[in-house]
Each structure stands twice: as C-alpha cells, then as structure tokens.
Computed example of a mutant assay.
Amino acid sequence: MSRPLADLPAEPAPPPGVTIRPLRPDDEDDLRLFHRIYDTAFRDTLDHDPLDFARWRELLPSYGKVWDEWFLAEVDGEPAGALQSSDQALERGSGWVRTLSVLPAYRRRGVGEALLRRAFAVYAAKGRTAAGLGVDLANPTAPVTLYRAVGLIEERWTDVYERSVSASRV
C-alpha cells in the first residue's frame, strides 16, 4: 500500500494521553523496549517467528540506518506501540514502514494512526514523495482499515499459497 506525500495535511495532534517519540538507538533500554513491543504485538499473527532480543539486535544493521524514522508510542506513560522504518524505498524517493506494532491493549485507540502520521510527516520533511508499506491480509488485527484511514491505497495484491507435504519414508 502507498500514498503520495505531496498533499499531506499537517500532522494532527495524537489522541489525549498518546505521545510519540523517536527511538534512541544508542540506548539499550530503548532497544529492548522496542523489541518487546514488536515481539508482543506480533504474537497473535500466523507467521510471526519470534526472535529473542540478542538475535533481533544482531539483525538490526540489515534493517537500514534510518534511526530517526523509528518511533515509540506511549499511552499515559505506558509503552503502547512502535514503528520501524526501512530504507528499502529511498531510491524511489519514498519512505517505507517496515513494521507497525501496537500492543493488544492499545489497539483501536489511535496509537497506530499517530505513529503512521508521524512517520509520514518525517518522510515528507525529508523530501520524500510517497510512503508505503506491505500488509499481510491474513493478519487477524485487520490493519487495512487503519491503513486506508491514513490515505494508503492498494498498489498490488500477491496471493501466497502454501502446501505442506510430509516427507516420504524410504
């Protein structure tokens, strides 16, 4: 899904009690918090492959270096969500949301929308012309409704089929 950033309205204030701040990548506690939110938020999805913090930390360099585009959200001072950007679309002049993670207790309370709107505003301030993300339609949290609400539209659909075949015994 994607949206142009040329017509991006001013970033609205987040809902009452919601604060969004950049991740501090040099702060181990911040990284641990980000990982905990991400891991917890995706546990109810079908294809989530949990990574312990140490393994996740090792993989960070492969996610890109756009640290000022990673955000943490709190609701009344409690951790609630995280957004991880990726540099995979920079050559097209686009910002890319790699993951949007909202803890179950804070879903449908404006946290995800506030995180996305902050990311879009940062992308636009850097001169990017569009923002995008991929979505798994099998995700039980049904994020497409949120994505459409912030102006993202479908660009293409990819159907993935999986079949399990037992190994033959020789």
Rank of each mutant, 00 (worst) to 15 (best):
P79I: 00
L59E: 11
F34W: 01
E28P: 04
S62T: 10
A80Q: 04
P22F: 04
P79Q: 02
D30M: 07
P15R: 15
R21Y: 00
R43K: 04
L23P: 03
G64R: 05
T40Q: 11
G64N: 07
Y38E: 05
P50W: 14
W70E: 00
D29Y: 02
V18R: 10
P25E: 15
A54E: 15
D39S: 14
F42W: 14
F34D: 02
V66R: 09
F53C: 11
S62N: 06
L31D: 09
I20Q: 07
D49P: 02
R57D: 14
R24S: 12
G77V: 11
P15I: 06
P14I: 10
D76A: 14
R43F: 07
D76R: 14
P25C: 10
D39I: 09
P61C: 07
F42H: 01
R24F: 01
Y63I: 06
E28D: 13
Y63N: 02
G64M: 05
P79N: 02
E74T: 04
V75G: 10
A82Y: 00
I37H: 05
R21Q: 11
R32H: 10
R32G: 11
Y63A: 03
Y38A: 09
Y63F: 11
A82L: 01
T40G: 11
W56H: 10
R24C: 07
L31V: 04
A80R: 04
W67F: 13
G17D: 13
D68Q: 12
L33Y: 01
G17Y: 06
L60W: 10
P16F: 11
D30P: 06
V75S: 10
Y63P: 03
L31S: 09
R24D: 15
W67N: 12
F42T: 01
E69M: 05
R55T: 15
L72N: 01
D47N: 14
L46G: 12
L33P: 00
L51K: 15
L33G: 01
D47M: 11
A54L: 05
A80L: 02
R21M: 06
A54V: 05
L31G: 12
D52P: 10
Y38V: 08
R32N: 08
D26L: 07
L59P: 02
A41R: 03
P61D: 06
R24K: 13
E69G: 05
D26R: 13
K65G: 13
L23V: 15
A73I: 03
T45P: 06
D76W: 07
D68H: 12
L33N: 02
E78T: 12
V18A: 09
T45S: 06
L51N: 13
I37E: 05
T45F: 00
R57M: 14
R32I: 13
A73E: 03
E74M: 01
S62R: 08
E74P: 01
